Amino acid sequence: MLTYHEFIELRNHLVNNEISLELAKAHCWNTLEEGKRSWHTKDWKDRRSEIIKDKCEICGSNETLTLQHLSHPKKYSEYTKDVTSAHAKDYIDTNPDLDKFEFKAHILKNYKYVPAPLCPKCKSRNPNKRTRKSPQYLCTECRYEFDETVYKSVDELILTFYENEEATEVRDKCFVSKKWKNKHNLKNIRYWLQREQAKNKDSETIEKEAFLLYLNDNIKYLSFEDTITACKKCASYFDLYNMELCPKCKENYKSIQFSTCIQCLPEDKRKAALSKIEFGNDMRDMHRELGID
């Protein structure tokens, strides 16, 4: 497991092109030991002792103190996703046009077309299908009755899309991915194709940017930059329940999104909050009794 200074050294080597990306990744991840965390290392413990204060910065207690991080590193895959999205946006902005024949070939290769049924008279979508009446279908737009729906071909949809990508008939998610089985409309398909093109074009740059962000995030975490000294109780409430001590009464814990705890709210707001909590508890009890919990 790399130490704080080793992370900085690795980042600098990568920035200065003194090490390849693949070697940098291997050096970073091959040193990880299963079950071992950064706070188990001697480097962490030595630097922690220089930074930790003598009392909890939240409640003032001096029992079982710890350094509480207010932010944590993201996964490398999350950075890869974010950086790829940014590159895709730039690529699409500079290459907005996509060859129609390439687009069609991509669709036919990667998607199954499940056309939306249309009224043969007015071409409105999804006519009402009846089980006991004949003719079987009723168009809710023009009230025409018929037995067989009509469909637009892939070519017709693509042509319409290239003429007006906001047209109603191209909004339907009638293309099912052969790989992932999820549904897309033509605009979705175009985005993911262009995103893949951007990724293929800038794959090495994307991976390097993402890995540098990952390294910087870990360096920030190991530097104790975004930390406070907290007692075990305050740290647990923050980590497990996203709660902190109420700054007004200094007694009750509250969700970090609220300014005070319920007890410190004005009377009318406190009653409303308690009423909501009671209602929620009653609903949970009822669900439990009905077996739908």
Rank of each mutant, 00 (worst) to 15 (best):
A198C: 00
A198R: 00
K199S: 03
N200S: 00
N200T: 00
K201H: 04
D202G: 01
D202R: 03
E204A: 03
E204F: 08
T205W: 13
T205M: 12
T205S: 13
I206T: 02
K208V: 08
K208T: 15
K208Y: 06
A210W: 09
F211R: 03
L212C: 09
L212N: 04
L213W: 15
L213Y: 12
Y214M: 13
Y214T: 08
L215A: 03
L215V: 09
N216W: 02
D217G: 15
N218W: 02
N218L: 06
I219G: 05
I219W: 04
I219P: 00
K220D: 11
K220V: 00
Y221G: 05
L222T: 02
S223K: 01
S223P: 01
F224S: 14
F224I: 14
F224L: 15
F224V: 08
F224Q: 09
E225R: 02
D226L: 07
D226P: 00
D226A: 07
D226V: 09
D226G: 04
T227S: 14
I228L: 11
T229M: 12
T229C: 12
A230Y: 05
A230M: 08
C231H: 10
C231M: 11
K232D: 10
K232C: 11
K232P: 13
C234M: 11
C234K: 02
C234W: 02
C234E: 08
A235V: 07
A235C: 09
F238P: 01
F238Y: 13
D239E: 08
L240M: 06
Y241S: 14
N242I: 13
N242E: 12
M243I: 04
C246I: 05
P247K: 11
K248I: 07
K248A: 08
C249E: 01
C249N: 06
C249Q: 05
C249F: 00
K250M: 07
E251F: 03
N252K: 06
K254D: 03
K254N: 01
I256D: 08
I256P: 13
Q257S: 13
Q257H: 14
Q257K: 11
F258L: 09
F258Q: 14
S259G: 10
S259M: 14
T260H: 07
T260G: 02
T260R: 04
T260Y: 04
Q263E: 08
Q263R: 01
Q263M: 09
C264T: 15
C264K: 01
C264P: 02
C264Q: 06
L265N: 04
L265W: 04
P266C: 15
E267D: 15
K271T: 15
K271G: 10
A272T: 13
L274F: 01
L274N: 14
L274R: 12
L274T: 10
S275V: 14
S275T: 10
K276V: 10
K276Y: 02
K276A: 15
I277Y: 01
E278W: 05
E278G: 12
E278A: 11
F279A: 07
